[in-house]
């Protein structure tokens, strides 16, 4: 059976859900709601956690833009969802399994309608692959969205596009998107390597062949990670083997 996890804000989504009940408007019982103060609280990591936990779809339901009780929370979560969708696409997942819905607390019909729509869409995508490889990809993506660099960019991006970067240079929406996409990719590679070196040490060639990267890519990444103190050389083997430094 399809399972949908929804993060609802107390003032928009939760209230609309209450009203749907009051008006007796039915919608799929596959929904499970998690109430938060404001959708601005919904972390990109949570969205991926829900998928890892077995949700087929995730929907974040908050107040309409410009009318958030908390002013800008919904706008911020919209940006996060955009990047989670791109991240999912990058690892071969259906991006639309995560979406947002912004509605006024009076829009009980819209609420019910959109849950129905999501369930239908999810059925049409078919059951998602949740084999070990897919799960590992998701867990890696989860870590990517907990990384400083990517969170900083997602947070700063919209303001950068509006006001220019820290050096006062203008940034176009396209440039910003390109930057995040390339950083998403490189962080994903980096985290995959880190995860590979977490429980078991490995050489550059091991890691490259196991993860399907070129040895050059892996070598560069590992030397960066050594510089950051996140990977260390283990023992005196030849070729050298590396292991993640647990913080």
């Amino acid at each position: 059976m399809t399972k949908i996890v929804s993060f609802v804000c107390e003032w928009g989504g939760y209230t609309a859900a209450d009203l749907a009940g009051f008006r007796g408007i039915s919608y799929p019982s596959s929904l499970r709601t998690i109430r938060v103060e404001c959708t601005g609280r919904v972390d990109p990591v949570w969205m991926i956690d829900a998928i890892i936990a077995g949700a087929d779809g995730v929907i974040i339901i908050g107040c309409p833009e410009g009318d958030s009780r908390h002013e800008i929370g919904n706008f911020r979560v919209h940006e996060r969802v955009r990047w989670v969708q791109k991240g999912l696409e990058m690892i071969g997942e259906e991006p639309q399994q995560v979406r947002t819905l912004f509605l006024s607390s009076e829009d009980a019909e819209v609420f019910a309608g959109k849950i129905g729509e999501l369930e239908k869409d999810l059925e049409s995508y078919g059951p998602p692959a949740r084999d070990e490889a897919a799960l590992e990809n998701l867990r890696t993506l989860r870590e990517v969205f907990a990384e400083e660099k990517i969170r900083w960019l997602i947070g700063r991006g919209p303001d950068m596009v509006a006001d220019g970067n820290s050096f006062g240079e203008p940034v176009t929406a396209e440039e910003y998107d390109e930057d995040v996409e390339s950083i998403l990719k490189s962080e994903h590679r980096r985290i995959s390597i880190l995860r590979r070196l977490r429980d078991e040490a490995g050489s550059v060639t091991d890691v490259a062949s196991q993860l399907g990267f070129s040895t050059r890519e892996v070598m560069l990444e590992i030397s960066d990670l050594i510089g950051l103190g996140r990977v260390a050389i283990k023992g005196h083997e030849d070729p050298p083997v590396f292991k993640e430094v647990l913080m």
Binding site: E37, C38, G40, R41, P44, H70, R76, E148
Partner: peptide, 14 residues
Amino acid sequence: CKGCGTCVASCPAL
């Protein structure tokens, strides 16, 4: 603070 959590879910350093 209204407890909206927008800063929480944005903080790069968690």
